[in-house]
Nucleic acid binder design. Structure first.
Ligand SMILES: [Mn+2]
Ligand SMILES: [Mn+2]
Ligand SMILES: [Zn+2]
Ligand SMILES: [Zn+2]
Lengths: 125, 125
DNA sequence: CTCAGATTTAGACTTAATCTACATCTGTTG
DNA sequence: CAACAGATGTAGATTAAGTCTAAATCTGAG
């Protein structure tokens, strides 16, 4: 973590151990709840501040995909997302799984793009 | 509007006149603010309820694309979106402007998908 | 015209997120 | 080590989007 210019306080390490290792897409409140299980005194403000710090240093992405709260994503490589209509659960889709042609728009400098897919898990066949 | 099974009250007509005709992607608060200019007594609850009603009847889409609040979109045909990093402004991208290959995911019934592009307006050349 | 159901309203409430002011920690310097 | 300044963390207040409630008002079928 210090390799990224972030001083590794105990709180930051506890937050990192959860949020940088998950394959889910937790909200800030979910991160706070999880981290309090092992670090009961950590404050809400520290969790929100640390998530923004990690984001600014490129360790996390923040997405708004519906459900009313932002989610955090330690997978910082380009990829797409599937959002379950019923549960709101978010799953990663590998970049290679969807072919997207050139994204060039007039008068726009594109920073990033991705596909958001919505639907439901299919019933057993 | 009655063709969609919605009783056209004065409030609903005032809301529809703005939100079904705009080419922007206003938030509920922006809709409320705009509608109050011509209908000063309309309540916040009526605006939120009416937007959800229009959405349920297929007159509007609701998107969460960042910025902390949902936006409403009278363009209910499939299309993509560009989000300006600096201003948060949202612009439509025609469906035909981006080629997206097959979107098929294991165990998923896809309801809809689209591309979200982020970046900034290019400076004059 | 009546009145039951539909619609609207003001304001209370909930929740995500941010802010503030103060406390604590930590690394550096003498 | 001791002092201290800057960095970090904390509790609780605050903001803002959105929802809910209970009461008022409207409307059209009979
Ligand atoms: Mn929503
Ligand atoms: Mn919010
Ligand atoms: Zn992801
Ligand atoms: Zn649109």
């Amino acid at each position: 973590m210090s390799q990224y210019g972030i001083r590794p306080s105990a709180q930051r390490v506890a937050i990192a151990r959860y949020v940088l290792a998950t394959d889910q897409h937790p909200t800030a409140e979910q991160v706070w709840s999880r981290v309090r299980a092992t670090f009961p005194t950590v404050s809400r403000a520290t969790v929100y501040n640390t998530l923004q710090l990690f984001k600014q240093h490129g360790l996390l992405l923040e997405h708004e995909l519906g459900g009313g709260s932002a989610v955090f994503d330690p997978n910082v490589e380009p990829h797409h997302h599937f959002v379950d209509d019923e549960t709101g659960e978010i799953r990663d889709i590998p970049w290679s799984a969807i072919a997207v042609g050139d994204v060039q728009l007039p008068d726009v400098q594109v920073r990033e793009y991705s596909v958001v897919v919505r639907g439901r898990r299919a019933d057993a066949p």
